[in-house]
């Protein structure tokens, strides 16, 4: 016993050998897989854990999702570090396509944004169906508002709504507008802790646990719809792109089977995503 507890030369070699073995057993031949660059909100909505196992079962291809803000996800694809991009910022996606970083873009589904706010509702907007009017009231009352500020799809959408509402953010910005530069979850945590308004996607909101006294104040405005697209990274630019496996994933997502799987995903009985791919 004393021997095994002491550092002897033999003990040291045994320990090193055991550690090496332990470390090395993690290295093994891998199943075919593709890397999908997607967004934190998509990942945190739980859709992938519902969707991906069914795809893998159908096609024998593993899917590794790297979840980032839309801007970072696109950047990943630009550098060739992903095979497929699955994000929700149609304008940015179109631009990306035009620049030739991806070869095609397909609509897959949409969900909607909701405006979240504290129960005491300092801007008096609860129950409204007009997102633009609600934002104007928040600005006028200088009620606390948390922004993602991370160049994500949700952030881009928020900026579009401010613009459409006729609010010049640069001029109106003040302590009430809190630019957090963080993902959907951390931004919601901040809003919950400070009793602020925040624009969120419904999926993340539904699976978010730390709500405190936040609730939905504005929903159902057509302008709040949030379109998701899927794109294959251009193999001509990046020779390592797994073209066939990536294409298989895209084809499955927009196929009737894939679309049905998306429609089936529910949290608390609520459908989160509405498939709307064009018939292939």
């Amino acid at each position: 016993m004393a021997l095994s507890l002491s550092i002897t030369r033999r003990g040291l070699f045994a320990l090193i050998a055991a550690c090496s073995l332990f470390v090395a057993t993690g290295v093994r031949a891998e199943d075919p897989y593709i890397t999908v660059a997607s967004t934190t909100s998509t990942e945190q909505s739980g859709l992938f854990s519902h969707l991906l196992p069914q795809f893998t079962k159908a096609r024998g291809i593993q899917v590794r999702v790297v979840a980032l803000g839309t801007g970072q996800a696109l950047d990943l694809a630009r550098r060739g570090d992903a095979d497929v991009v699955f994000v929700h910022d149609k304008a940015a996606e179109q631009k990306f396509l035009d620049e030739g970083y991806v070869v095609q873009r397909h609509d897959v589904m949409y969900n909607d944004f909701v405006l979240i706010g504290p129960k005491d509702d300092p801007a008096k907007i609860a129950g409204s169906k007009d997102i633009l009017e609600a934002l104007r009231k928040i600005k006028d009352s200088r009620a606390a508002f948390v922004s993602r500020g991370d160049k994500s799809g949700t952030h881009a959408a928020e900026l579009r709504y401010w613009k459409a509402a006729g609010v010049d953010l640069d001029a109106a910005k003040g302590p009430w507008y809190r630019d957090t530069g963080s993902g959907m979850g951390p931004a919601l945590n901040t809003a919950a802790a400070t009793g602020a308004y925040i624009l969120a996607d419904r999926g993340t909101w539904l699976s978010f646990k730390n709500r405190r006294d936040l609730h939905i104040v504005v929903e159902g405005d057509k302008r709040l719809f949030n379109q998701y697209g899927v794109m294959l990274v251009n193999p001509a630019k990046h020779p390592y792109v797994k073209k066939d496996a990536g294409q298989a994933f895209i084809d499955w997502m927009i196929s009737p089977t894939g679309q049905q799987v998306i429609a089936d995903y529910k949290i608390d009985g609520q459908q989160l995503f509405f498939p709307n791919a064009e018939k292939p």
Partner: peptide, 24 residues
């Protein structure tokens, strides 16, 4: 690592993920 489920998800990245999901 990219915090990929089942591939590169370790203790600390899981903690970060659960924090951002609000599951404190």
């Amino acid at each position: 690592g990219g915090n990929i489920d089942g591939v590169t998800r370790v203790m600390t990245t899981t903690i970060a993920l659960e924090t951002s999901k609000g599951d404190l």
